[in-house]
């Protein structure tokens, strides 16, 4: 086992180095062209009444990398996720999924279930474990092209039993990897919040995806489990999948992502490797600007600024803490 772990760690490191090498020549401009993109977004625009939720001119997600999508609340990250996975329709725009370097599929107006079948699978910010089904059934559900999922063949078990057993074996393997194998026969509703996140990720893998899109995979997960989740995300990259994930925690982003895309007010304002992005003044503005607006009325009501600077700083710190806690629930 230990040698296996070491091999896995090595593989992960190698994958990260390879990914970084691929992207080392790419400039750090929003909308930059990547040498080998897996998902290319063009002019996607989604408006809710007068509010422009997403307005992305051009954006490319690199293949075989972990790309983080960050931005302040309301930046349009989840809306972009919903658009790309067919859960929402844009007013305008186009995007292309390239499962291999020389195939491209136009994905606009493709319904969500076809997006998943094409190899782009997603998870949700609020975990969608199917509570009244067992953990194993949750997993088996996700396998694609099942004979027994057609209404008439489903009545004749001998037509699909062999396939079902193969699916079950694969499901148990994945569950073991995510340390959920002992829970296989329990209802998913009895799992803890963190275990549900693990189950959702494992379940997504049952579809044999090319891109895994994780919407806040770490939200509501305790620190101990966060580490294990991070390892699982890195393992996806070593297994050759591309990962796009939405996250708030900068430490997590710095730790695992090869590339970071920053969104604010619906658009992409910065792109680059994590360390470059976190030093980018636009990004700092986007984040701290948002905090500033929230704290401003308090400052105005209070005594002269200089006297209260410390108090305000504390207040902001408390508020950030609060928000994080809320996001963590």
């Amino acid at each position: 086992m230990p040698s296996n772990d070491i091999r896995a760690v090595d593989a992960a490191r190698e994958a990260k180095v390879a990914a970084a090498r691929d992207l080392s020549d790419v400039s750090h401009e929003p909308g930059v062209v990547k040498p080998d993109a897996i998902l290319v977004v063009d002019g996607v625009r989604r408006q809710f009444g007068g509010l422009v939720a997403v307005d992305v001119d051009h954006l490319e997600f690199p293949r075989g990398c972990i790309t983080a999508l960050i931005g302040p609340n309301g930046a349009g990250k989840t809306t972009l996720f919903n658009l790309l996975t067919g859960f929402d329709r844009p007013q305008d725009g186009d995007w292309e999924f390239r499962p291999t370097a020389d195939t491209a599929k136009k994905m606009r107006n493709v319904p969500a279930y076809r997006v998943a079948r094409a190899g782009m699978v997603r998870t949700f910010q609020l975990t969608k474990a199917l509570s009244k089904m067992t953990v194993l059934d949750n997993m088996k559900l996700a396998a694609t092209r099942q004979q027994g999922e057609r209404i008439w063949p489903s009545l004749l078990p001998f037509l699909w039993r062999a396939q079902d057993q193969a699916i079950e074996a694969r499901a148990m393997e994945l569950l073991a990897r995510f340390k959920l194998d002992t829970k296989a026969q329990e209802y998913a509703g009895t799992l803890s919040g963190g275990q549900r996140k693990l189950l959702e990720m494992a379940r997504a893998l049952m579809t044999e995806p090319t891109i895994v899109m994780l919407d806040e995979p770490m939200a509501g997960v305790n620190p101990a489990l966060t580490q294990s989740l991070l390892e699982h995300v890195k393992a996806l990259r070593s297994d050759g999948m591309s990962v796009i994930f939405v996250e708030h925690d900068m430490d997590v982003v710095r730790d695992i992502s090869d590339w970071v895309v920053v969104m604010a007010q619906g658009g992409v304002i910065a792109e680059g490797p994590p360390d470059v992005v976190s030093a980018n003044p636009h990004v700092i503005d986007a984040y701290l600007g948002a905090r500033h607006d929230e704290a401003l009325p308090e400052v105005e009501l209070g005594a002269p600024l200089a006297d209260d600077a410390e108090a305000v700083r504390e207040e902001i710190a408390a508020e950030i803490h609060e928000t994080e806690k809320e996001a963590g629930q």
Partner: peptide, 10 residues
């Protein structure tokens, strides 16, 4: 249980 989850799984 959750039709969006089913949709997201194809």
């Amino acid at each position: 249980e959750d039709e969006d989850a089913a949709r997201a799984l194809g």
